[in-house]
């Protein structure tokens, strides 16, 4: 039995361009079979009980199997002129959708998992940053995050101290804002949209909105896929597969403030699909 508050959220289910190109997608959402296809020019998501609520945003199709508790979150930067929007594609991961989001919010793993790209020893220290749950938007935010990176982006030359902001606007979506190597007055925006197939299996759709007129599209996608495949080697080897919300099960430190806030936020809102409530 899936909690109503889980059913009332929005989840990514497809890349919009693929559906518009006539590729029907037969998949799962929260353990139930669904089909995403084009009917009379409109994208339709059909489950066993009929049509689901559908919206299209950030290159992806989003569905809500219950009654939407709110509109899909905005990413205002996606509308800024001059940005390149990059749909990276899909990566299937044998883990809880919540573990995939939590890993995206983590910086301390950069030197060990994305060695010599997003981090490198001995630059391992995570400086104190700020985390809050914003009451107005009901989102988790981490700000004033800084980290030394050997190659922060495809367009970066040499190491820089990168600034980050992280945002969790939906239980299975996260967006980060990071220093843009080409511009001092703007952030690069990268999201991951996670489709919960089941509690222990997900499809992850990375997405980017960058200021980068130079790098070929294929290289941007290859860079982001390399990063996420490195993450997958971690995500498929965490025990348990479900994200533990029992505070005794895992040991966070100050570097994990975003993860702590994310877990609390999920627990408080009852968004426990993919979570383990008590130690097994």
């Amino acid at each position: 039995m899936i909690a109503q508050q889980v059913l009332n959220e929005w989840y990514p289910v497809a890349m919009a361009a693929q559906i518009r190109a006539g590729q029907r997608r037969v998949t799962q959402l929260l353990g139930q079979p669904i089909t995403v296809d084009l009917q009379k020019g409109a994208i339709v998501v059909t489950g066993q009980g009929g049509a689901l609520h559908v919206t299209e945003a950030f290159g992806h199709v989003w569905a809500c199997p219950g009654t939407p508790a709110h509109d899909l979150f905005p990413i205002p930067e996606a509308l800024e002129p001059g940005r390149r929007l990059v749909d990276v594609g899909v990566v299937r991961v044998k883990c809880s959708p919540l573990r995939a989001v939590e890993n995206f919010l983590d910086i301390a793993h950069f030197p060990f998992v994305h060695t010599d790209v997003l981090g490198a020893e001995p630059h391992t220290e995570v400086n104190r940053y700020e985390v809050q749950i914003r009451e107005d938007s009901d989102e988790v935010w981490a700000t004033k995050v800084t980290f030394y990176q050997p190659q922060a982006a495809k367009s970066a030359e040499g190491g820089i101290v990168t600034q980050y902001m992280y945002r969790v606007p939906a239980p299975t979506a996260a967006v980060l804002y990071k220093t843009c190597p080409n511009r001092t007055d703007a952030w690069d925006v990268i999201g991951i949209f996670v489709q919960p197939l089941t509690e222990e299996l997900c499809d992850v759709w990375p997405w980017m909105a960058l200021y980068d007129d130079v790098t070929p599209q294929a290289e941007l996608i290859a860079f982001q896929q390399m990063i996420f495949l490195q993450d997958r080697s971690i995500l498929e080897n965490q025990i348990p597969r479900l994200l533990p919300l029992d505070p005794g099960m895992e040991i966070p430190t100050q570097a994990d403030l975003t993860s702590i806030a994310y877990r609390r936020w999920l627990k408080k809102r009852g968004l426990t699909y993919g979570a383990q409530m008590v130690a097994a």
């Binding site: 983590d106 793993h109 965490q238 025990i239 895992e250």
Partner: peptide
């Protein structure tokens, strides 16, 4: 085979000297 921090398998880790380190956060 589990790092108490975030549950990562220590068998994926690395040995340095007389210590074993977790591959996730070192």
């Amino acid at each position: 085979d589990r790092c108490p921090h975030r549950g990562m398998r220590l068998s994926h880790g690395f040995v340095r000297g007389e210590t074993l380190a977790c591959i996730y956060h070192g």
